[in-house]
Design a protein around this nucleic acid. Structure first.
Lengths: 345, 345
DNA sequence: AATAGTATTGCAAATGTTTTCATAAAATAG
DNA sequence: CTATTTTATGAAAACATTTGCAATACTATT
């Protein structure tokens, strides 16, 4: 009945208790078919009795995979990343991998150090968001020779494997919808594009459509807002309180759009009668808003799942070479955009 | 110019290149003050040239801490957990720890296996959400002798260290507010309470106030809804489309409340004139909603930060024994609740 | 110039596993 | 029954580090 719980229970302790050698214990875990069922039973009993837990650090030292994947995101607390992370996590979990996670707060220098830390832990694979990374980061990954995937943006010439959608097209679709509806006085609200290729691409896509249609967005309607309902709302308020206001606002993502919606309600503007609003993303709550948000759907869960799936399979050797996967996006017309009275009628 | 990048760059390679022994290289990392500055310089140069990255797995084998903390949450894709995770992550990051994360989807059996996996990786500490865990889980943690913290619920007699708030009181405050405002026809909407002590406690708190005030909630107004805007909206619609409907609905969290708000708008009910709604949580967007959501504020970021802080300090030995920290909560009165016409006027 | 101390370095053991190789025991074939 | 194959096990090397101890090279003291 001596309770030697903390007395270091390693493979030797198990071997001793089961009266076998450590080789047999190890084998019993890794190649059970090679050990006598009776012996296996004894070992299992000893393991249970002692509460033995294998030490992956020791295993990792033999070139055996660590069973971990490093995931670096700009921020976790972000509707869309939370969704991607969840899907990614579920997916790699199915393959037995565990996730090391960290956020860099849109600081590429921090991203690099996080990556280094992950590498010290000998992660078997790496996942990053987007394609904006420092040269240091890219070369670190390349020199390491472990599978890595960039999530969110599709690019046929990406330096890393990628699973994502065409963000330029997303911006394009959103703007085109507004133009098709006859809007010409259009406001733009996007997050800061520095080191954020997703935002930049969407913005460029939108701009190209607008330019093509001969529409120019006056500077006071072209606003930058951090990813935050509150700040988007404030920024929108500034535009909407004016007498001369746009007939439509195109938002870089659905959270910003929600902020605009709240601002509109605050100003007693009816949506979509007095103001059209379109988002990008189609976040979880977007279809349930009242009125439902018109937006461009980027399949976050699918992207996360596919990224996890492909990274896992690259690690275990089922896949080789860089993978580049693009997920379809589509305009989701709901109830926040309305046709704008056209003169030609 | 021979590019031997993949030729296994370990501490020996560095030692060879710097023309010193591996001991010196190791020391140069761990006790730099013990090695000659000139030698250190040579070593640094070799490290840089070779792109050497230390192997934490090998270090961990010496009883040196792995530098990782295991975090298990019910789900990542959840406004409130995302917030907690972010704060927790930032906080432990400041102490140099890396997070291993996994979700169990409210399945306590999965929680147990995730924990075992973390232990195989020799995490230095463990963080869980809430107090509902299997006995297996509890005894596993206790026998392991590593610091662990339960996040979200405060309980003076908790089996693990805990950092959280009083959820019973949260339910209590919300219900009391409604009662104070003169409501007697009150609906309740809570997530499933099985294996979810937060929801259970809040519900009990609310119920006790209502019972105390002689109010009973008819079954058709006492609804259970998963954590989802869409499902909460649907459920609320069923109540609100009826002619006989409650004057107020108390929601187990702000996401459910948002669903109710959307349902109300769909039914053309004015908030708060026709229906009062109160949430619990005070999520990031709650104050910006139109009208702003009246709710009970649980300081998610603070809880996450404190939990990370205390766990880290317990690991490095600055703190010992179980810590139990409670964070203040408060009723936040905004604009979704209104006084209900009282007969005594 | 000899002695004692101090700064710097290397050797080798230790950490907890896996795996190759050798060996012993059991089963099968002839 | 012996020879051969198969099954089951153990011994020891390997993995990439850290660290206690010993050895060497300097520096300061008298």
């Amino acid at each position: 009945m001596t309770d030697n719980k903390l007395n270091k229970v390693d493979i030797f302790a198990v071997a001793k208790r089961a009266k076998v050698s450590i080789s047999t214990v190890s084998r019993s875990f890794n190649h059970p078919e090679l050990v006598n069922p009776a012996t296996r039973k004894k070992i299992d009993a000893a393991v249970r009795k002692l509460g033995y837990i294998r030490n992956r650090a020791a295993q990792t030292m033999h070139g055996i995979r660590s069973g971990t994947i490093g995931l670096v995101v700009p921020t976790i607390d972000h509707a869309i990343f939370a969704e991607v992370i969840q899907a990614f996590s579920d997916s790699v979990d199915d393959h037995g991998f565990t996730i090391l996670i960290a956020s860099h707060g849109y600081d590429l220098q921090r991203e690099y150090s996080v990556l280094r830390k992950f590498l010290e832990h000998r992660v078997d694979g790496l996942a990053l968001i987007g394609e904006d990374h420092s040269e240091e980061t890219y070369s670190l990954i390349e020199r390491q020779g472990i599978p890595a995937v960039s999530i969110w943006n599709y690019n046929a010439a990406s330096r890393l494997s990628c699973v994502g959608a065409d963000n330029t097209k997303a911006g394009w679709l959103a703007a085109q919808h507004l133009v098709d509806l006859g809007h010409r006085d259009i406001g733009l609200m996007f997050p800061t594009a520095t080191d954020n290729d997703r935002a930049r691409d969407r913005r460029n896509g939108a701009q190209s459509v607008l330019s093509g249609a001969g529409i120019s967005v006056p500077p006071q309607w072209d606003i930058e807002s951090p990813y935050s309902i509150a700040e988007a709302k404030d920024a929108a308020l500034k535009i909407l309180e004016n007498t001369h206001r746009p007939t439509a606002i195109l938002c870089g993502n659905d959270v910003l759009a929600l902020g605009v919606l709240y601002a509109a309600r605050r100003c007693n503007l009816r949506i979509p009668d007095d103001l059209s609003v379109i988002g990008i993303g189609d976040f979880k709550g977007s279809k349930d808003m009242e009125p439902g948000l018109t937006t461009v759907r980027l399949p976050a869960r699918k992207i996360g799942r596919l990224a996890g799936e492909h990274l896992s399979r690259s690690i275990i050797g089922e896949l080789s070479g860089p993978q580049r996967i693009t997920c379809d996006i589509e305009l989701i017309v709901r109830n926040t955009c309305q046709r704008q009275g056209v003169d030609t009628d």
